[in-house]
Simulated assay, not measured.
Amino acid sequence: MSNRPHRSPLISAGILMGAGLGGFVDGIVLHQILQWHNMLSNRLPPNTLVAAKVNMYWDGVFHAAVWVMTAIGLRMLWSVGKRHDVPWSGRTFGGALLFGWGLFNVVEGVIDHQVLGLHHVQEYATNKLPWDLAFLGFGVLLLLLGWSLMRAGRYDSASRGSY
């Protein structure tokens, strides 16, 4: 059996939690507070009560899915905390959170905004593409920042108390 530290369980938990939390930021800020779009607002504009209720339902399904991702990631993190072969690194975990959020933005932005056309970032803008590209660009920035923090975390001490 190897005594070599294993970072991948901490990274996996962080990526899953980051994707879930990134989904919450998207849903809370863009769907609810700013009301720029809903899950199906490009396919079914919420300009009638029935259409608004359908969009609200699918927003709820979306929130339930990101809640499940976050909960699974939290469970994984709890398990990591019991392992002595996983170095506890704030840079590694924080980088994984950012990487997960960026991964969420890129995957959701490509699939929902571009491929399926379910909605766009700013559904009511005359030109939706710049908003969608900014969302993707922010996702790529989060991926790069998260990756660099995870790489920097490789040099953290293998002791359980390092941050």
Rank of each mutant, 00 (worst) to 15 (best):
L40E: 09
L40M: 10
L40Y: 09
L40D: 12
S41H: 02
N42S: 14
N42A: 15
N42E: 14
R43S: 07
R43C: 06
R43E: 04
R43M: 11
L44R: 03
L44H: 07
P45E: 02
P45A: 05
P46V: 03
N47P: 13
N47K: 10
L49S: 13
A51F: 03
A52G: 08
K53V: 11
K53W: 08
V54F: 12
V54S: 04
V54A: 06
V54W: 11
N55P: 06
N55T: 05
N55S: 04
N55D: 05
M56I: 15
M56L: 15
W58E: 00
W58C: 00
D59P: 11
D59L: 12
G60C: 10
G60E: 05
V61G: 05
F62S: 01
F62N: 02
A65R: 09
A65Q: 08
A65W: 13
V66G: 04
W67I: 14
V68Y: 10
V68A: 08
M69Y: 10
M69V: 06
T70L: 11
T70V: 09
A71W: 13
A71M: 05
A71S: 03
I72T: 11
G73D: 06
M76W: 14
M76F: 09
L77A: 09
L77V: 14
W78V: 12
S79I: 02
S79M: 00
G81F: 05
K82N: 02
D85H: 01
P87T: 02
S89P: 00
S89Q: 01
S89G: 04
S89M: 04
G90A: 06
G90V: 07
G90H: 00
G90C: 04
R91L: 14
F93R: 01
G94V: 06
G94I: 04
G94K: 03
G95D: 04
G95T: 11
A96Q: 00
A96W: 05
L97N: 06
L97C: 06
L97T: 12
L97E: 01
L98W: 03
L98H: 09
G100R: 12
G100L: 07
W101R: 08
W101V: 14
G102N: 15
G102A: 13
G102V: 15
L103T: 12
L103A: 05
L103E: 03
F104N: 05
F104M: 07
F104Q: 03
F104C: 05
N105K: 06
N105Y: 14
V106G: 02
V107R: 10
V107I: 15
V107M: 13
E108Y: 15
E108S: 14
E108M: 14
V110W: 02
V110R: 07
I111P: 07
I111F: 10
I111W: 10
